[in-house]
Amino acid sequence: MVRRKKAAAAVVDSNGVIDNIAARRALPVWKRLGLHFGSYWELYLMLLPALCFIVLFAYVPMWGIQLAFREFVPSKGLSGGRWVGFQYFRQFFESPMFASTVWNTFKISIGTLVLGFIAPIFLALLINQIASVKFKGFIQTITYMPHFISTVVIVAMLNIFLTPGTGLLGRFFGKDNLMDNPNAIAPIYWLSEVWQHCGWNCIIYLAALSSVDVSLYEAAKIDGAGRLQLIRYVDLPTIMPTCVILLILNMGSVLNVGFEKVWLMQNAMNLPGSEVISTYTFKIGIQSFQFSYGTAIGLFNTFINFVFVVLANWISKRVSDTSIF
């Protein structure tokens, strides 16, 4: 204590007031660290478990990425064997699966992106038009519901409904099963995604819409705006910034298709239209034990996604002054 006072005494300014910050700066580094941890050790302790989990389960696998550039030797695990450079990447780029998996991934995700962007906005604008709070709540409850259904069940429902002849939808499509049609897989994926998540994704727009200043509606109505004009000139501009941000952020997942759903929708017949990068990685890596090749394909996908995220973030920063990092 005496020594701290001494240090403090050194930084009394001209008015005779002790400058605590300057006093602290005057202390040696180890002492400042000690003081810092002395006051905040509890915060670090709270952070520690989460940090350990993240380092172990997110950063250690990142270290294992080098496997994409090395031969896999079972005894050496993550760090791999001989360095082979870009051999596995070349192998992937030259393989006949490259074009089709990338194209399928792109097709499935871009449709989901576009439909999944428009539908919730439309729904939110509609729901916002309901005056009765009870009824609004009812519609929200109903439309959120599918969000909680598991992918396995969703795909099972698709199979049931699309059964040719007897299914709820299948009976309208003749004798062929749509699930077996490689060209139909992408639209089925898009539409079922919209069906499942549209209600949930519109929450954010509803939240934005609830912040509209009521006087805007009043003013617009005095100026003779009808119902549609209120939507067009008040509601839509209000949620526009949210829309732009979400669109740009979603762009980051252009080459990112959820593994589970595609995997479950796949069958021998529709494979030409449903083999995406993530399922191909699984087949190569886990099922046929080509670990290095699988890692390379996975890394390719991660890298493309990452580039898109950074790009989207950069555009977002320019356009709307919002960014994620």
Partner: peptide
């Protein structure tokens, strides 16, 4: 710094195979 360490994992990961081996 720590926040960046966390958010970075949302956008970049080791991928399926390294996780599996780990």
């Amino acid at each position: 710094v720590i926040l960046f360490l966390f958010t970075f994992t949302m956008y970049f990961s080791g991928g399926l195979i390294p996780s599996y081996l780990l």
